[in-house]
Design a protein around this nucleic acid. Structure first.
Lengths: 248, 248
DNA sequence: TTTATTTGTCTATTTATCTAGACAACTAGA
DNA sequence: TCTAGTTGTCTAGATAAATAGACAAATAAA
C-alpha cells in the first residue's frame, strides 16, 4: 500500500505517475509486462480511479506505457539510457552495451567576453573573449540533453566555423593541434527543469534534469573546454568510469 | 519575467519556490542578501501575491530564507554541499573547502542470500550470503543521504559487529587486511524521492533525489562493496574527480 | 512624527483537482 | 453467445489552490 501526500504542492496524479515510473524501472511488473488494472492501482494508492487515470495519461504521453481499451495498460519503455562519463569522455564515441549513436545540433554560437565563472574555469583573464556554443543533443534518436560550452576565444577564434566543417569536437581540437584531451572534473546536481530545458528537450513541467558542469583539459593540464549540460533525468543515467573498468 | 506553467501537476507556489531556490544558488540576489519584495516577485512570476507568499513559506520551512515583517525576506542558505566522488572516495574524509564533518547512523543490518543484482555486482555465486547495512548519513549536521550497502557474507561475516567497534568502513576493511580500496564505477540517476527516502531525509513529497549505484574493489580488483545511495538533491551536488585535480 | 514600504491577516470568489457513481465500449475466455 | 474484467466517457459535487482586495502591523528613513 503506497503513500501519496496531499497538500504537498504536487498533485496526486503526478505523485502516482512518479511512483509507477519508478516501480517499472525497478522491474516490479516484469511478469506480464503490464500494469495492474485501474481499480487495483486506485486501491493501492488510496485514491479515486479517475486520479489513477490521470497518472496513466501522463505516462502515456511520455511514452512509458500504452493503453488498450478492454485489455489493459502495457509497459513500453523500461530503462534509462546509460551515458558514460570518464577521463576520456567523448560525446561522439559509442560504447558497447550502452548508449547508441549520438548527434549534436548547434542552436547558436557567439564570441563574447567571458563571464566570471567561465574565465575562472578556463583559467583566462577576466573578460577575455570566449567562444560559446549552444547545442541540443540526441542519442538513439531521442532528445537527451542540451549543453552550453565555452572555449578560449584567442586560442580557438574560428571554433564555430570549424564546427560546421568537422562535426565533432575531437576533430576540431585535432585541427588545432590538440591530439588528446581529458576530463578533469565533473560536478553533478539535479533540479526541476528550467523553461529552456523543458522546451529544448520537449519535457513536461515538473520534469527533472541532471545538470553537469565539466572541465576538459589538454595533455599539459591547460583547460580547453568548460561546459554546462542538462540531461532529461527520466531518459538518462550517468555512468562514471573511475579508471579501471570492471563492470559488465 | 520567469515562467510558471499551470495544470502541470506542480502547484504554482511550488514551481516558484523551486525557481527562487535555483536563483539563490546562482547568486542572483547576492547584492543585499535579500529577496525582492512579495509584490515584485508576484509581478515577476505573473501570479498573485498570496501565491508567492506560499512559496516563501515553503522556503522558510526548508531553512533557505528567513522573513521579517516590515523589513523583507533574507537569504539564510545559499549553496549546496559538495560531495566528492572519486577513485578514493571515502565517506569519513573531509575535503578542504568542500563538505564538512560527516556521520553515519546504522539503521539496521542483515545477513541474507544475495539478490541477483547484488551477487552480479560483487561477482559472487547467485544466492551467496551477503551482509546488508542500511545507514542514514549526515554532513555538517544536515541529513544528506541514506544508503544500502552489501558485502560478501563469507569474507566479511561479522562486518556489522565490527561496524559498531570501528565506526568507519575503511577501518573495518583494514581489520580484514584490506589496506586500500578504490571506487571502480558509479552510476548516477535522478528521481522523485520514494517514500523511504522522504522519511529518512525528512523531505517533502515531490523532492528530488540523486541516486548513486557504486562498486568498490580491493587492490586486486576484487569487488568488496556494492551500494545504493540516495542524496537529497536540494542539499547536495556530486563532485566527480577523474584523477587530476585542477579545480579551485 | 510622518510617510513610504514592507510583511501579516482576513474575507470572498474563481478555478483546478479529486471524488463518486453510472453506464458504454471493448477484449478474452468459458 | 454469454460473462467477467478491462478501459472510456459522462454528470455532479466536494475539496484544494489561486486570485482579488482591504486593511493591520512592523520597519526605516525623511
Amino acid at each position: 500500500m503506497d503513500n501519496v501526500e496531499r497538500r504537498s504542492g504536487i498533485s496526486l496524479w503526478r505523485q502516482i505517475a512518479d511512483q509507477i515510473r519508478i516501480a517499472i524501472s525497478n522491474g516490479e511488473f516484469d511478469g506480464n509486462n503490464m500494469l495492474p488494472g485501474e481499480i487495483a492501482l486506485a486501491k493501492r494508492f488510496s485514491v479515486n480511479r479517475h486520479t489513477v487515470r490521470s497518472a496513466i495519461a501522463s505516462l502515456t504521453q511520455e511514452g512509458v506505457v500504452r493503453v488498450e481499451q478492454g485489455r489493459g495498460t502495457f509497459i513500453e519503455r523500461r530503462e534509462r539510457l546509460q551515458y558514460p562519463i570518464g577521463r576520456r569522455t567523448r560525446f561522439s564515441e559509442g560504447l558497447a552495451g550502452k548508449i547508441g549513436p549520438r548527434d549534436r545540433h548547434l542552436k547558436n554560437h557567439t564570441l563574447q567576453p567571458a563571464p566570471a565563472f567561465v574565465s575562472t574555469a578556463l583559467q583566462l583573464a577576466p573578460g577575455a573573449p570566449v567562444v560559446q556554443l549552444e547545442t541540443v543533443n540526441t542519442a538513439d534518436d531521442q532528445l537527451v540533453s542540451r549543453a552550453i560550452s565555452w572555449f578560449d576565444g584567442e586560442r580557438f577564434s574560428d571554433f564555430a566555423d570549424r564546427y560546421v566543417e568537422y562535426g565533432s569536437i575531437t576533430a576540431i581540437f585535432k585541427s588545432y593541434g590538440i591530439d588528446d584531451y581529458i576530463r578533469v572534473s565533473t560536478r553533478i546536481s539535479a533540479h526541476h527543469a528550467d523553461s529552456t530545458t523543458l522546451e529544448d528537450l520537449q519535457l513536461s513541467p515538473g520534469a527533472i534534469m541532471l545538470r553537469t558542469e565539466a572541465i576538459n583539459a589538454d595533455m599539459n593540464g591547460r583547460p580547453v573546454e568548460y561546459s554546462h549540460s542538462y540531461f532529461a533525468a527520466d531518459r538518462i543515467e550517468l555512468d562514471i568510469d573511475h579508471g579501471t573498468a570492471l563492470r559488465a
